[in-house]
Design a protein around this nucleic acid. Structure first.
Length: 406
DNA sequence: TCTGGGGTCCTAGGACCC
DNA sequence: TCTGGGGTCCTAGGACCC
């Protein structure tokens, strides 16, 4: 490693992660739950009842029945072993007395806008990573800020602390920030001192702070890859870094193998991307009970049409037209099937979506009971600037489409 | 009483064109 | 009869993330 580069990186990238975001927003509304195990999730109505004396009666996890999962849990609930993604029925066995609150996404989106606006006041180069996370490019701010002699990172630390303070002032919420020369390492180190943490590292800290971590902590190494790595005797990022790139390529393919080697050595050149267009918009729903394509045909048809209407309204609100419509089916054994169709026309409304989604659905096998149905729009274009009106489409291609060759 | 809903990206095969 | 190589589009599935 180059020592000068390690001490004075060419970029300073921050990763900001709101602490237990949804649950923390709920605690602002229900401060009496502070310090208690609280879980946000589920789809059935179980909003707290307001009592005559002004206090609230909260639903308990043990009273829940259904197919919901935990969206977020407070740190007190996590201490009992529950975590996001876990089925609520399973979580109820671990934390029966935990308060259960329904997710209120409109409210979370509102707080999301607030904290991002607060950050932008200080550092405008922001990349959205969902509702509760962002990357921030601090490079230019760091250059403008003088570092003191005693703490080489006092400049960057001061900027990060100002961001944390501004976020708290604007929302009443805490966040954790990791700062490093790239997105990969910042994402890793924002978790190291959660909640309300601030962690600054450079390449020199790789062996001490990053290599001891499990490989699965790296963004992009999920359950499948971790399991395969473990079966090959690799559990930590350090063990991954000690592997030969040739050997990794043999086991994981040329691209993923090379990537594994790069990230284990902390290398990541991805820029902070401040703007991007959506690639797809979708709606899906898991049924209260599994439905059979023939036996429950009527009910399924209604749900299907409703999904198409919701998707059409999303599309219109966001100002896009689609060329490709797809359906997604999850069967009772959890197997997923998708079918897509590219149309010879721009699809903008519920009728068009329903038509093409119906044709796509006809291509799917429909013998088994269904657990989930979804509709997706792809090949999106801004509706007010379509590159080609449908009637101008290439005639030959149009004929092929009409003949059903696609 | 297992396992939500919204996304992105990658791979791989086939059709088709030059 | 058998024979290229590159490029794009479409489709299906799967891993992964928040």
């Amino acid at each position: 490693m180059n020592e000068a580069e390690a001490k004075s990186p060419s970029r300073w990238i921050a990763h900001l992660d709101m602490d237990a975001f949804y649950a923390s927003v709920e605690l602002l509304r229900y401060p009496e739950l502070r310090g208690k195990p609280v879980v946000v999730g589920g789809r059935r109505a179980h909003a707290p009842d307001q009592l005559a004396n002004g206090s609230h009666k909260f639903a308990r996890l043990r009273d829940y029945a259904g197919r919901g999962v935990i969206t977020t849990a407070t740190y007190e609930a996590r201490a009992l072993g529950v975590h996001s993604g876990m089925g609520l029925m399973k979580a109820a066995a671990l934390a029966p007395e935990a308060a259960l609150l329904p997710a209120d996404f409109d409210q979370y989106r509102d707080y999301s806008r607030q904290f991002k606006t607060a950050v932008r006041d200080i550092a405008p180069q922001i990349e959205n990573r969902g509702i509760d996370e962002i990357y921030i490019d601090l490079t230019e701010l760091a250059v403008a800020d003088d570092a003191s002699d005693t703490d080489p990172y006092s400049g960057i630390r001061d900027i990060a602390l100002r961001i944390k303070s501004r976020v708290h002032k604007a929302t009443g919420l805490t966040c954790s920030i990791g700062v490093s020369p790239n997105k990969l390492l910042s994402k890793l180190c924002s978790e190291l001192e959660k909640p309300n943490g601030l962690t600054i590292i450079t390449m020199a800290d790789l062996p001490g702070r990053i290599w001891p971590l499990p490989a699965s902590r790296i963004n992009g190494i999920g359950p499948k890859a971790s399991e395969k790595l473990a079966s090959l005797g690799i559990n930590t990022i350090g063990e991954l870094a000690a592997s030969e790139v040739i050997w990794l390529k043999q086991h994981f393919g040329p691209n993923y193998g090379a990537w594994l080697h790069r990230v284990a050595h902390g290398r990541d050149e991805r820029p902070v991307v401040t703007y991007s267009e959506p690639k797809s918009i979708s709606r899906e729903t898991t049924f209260e009970r599994d439905l059979h394509p023939r036996h429950d045909r009527e009910e399924l048809g209604k749900l299907f049409t409703r999904l198409c209407e919701q998707l059409a309204s999303d599309l219109q609100r966001k100002g896009y037209a689609a060329k490709t419509i797809g359906v997604k089916l999850r069967f009772d054994d959890f197997k997923i099937v998708t079918r897509v169709l590219t149309a010879n026309t721009w699809i903008k409304d519920a009728t068009g979506i329903r038509h093409w989604a119906g044709r796509a659905l006809k291509k799917a096998p429909l013998e088994q009971k269904l657990r989930l149905l979804g509709v997706r729009a792809e090949n999106l274009y801004a509706a007010d600037a379509l590159p080609l009106p449908a009637e101008d489409m290439d005639q030959e291609r149009h004929d092929q489409l009409s003949l059903g060759l696609y």
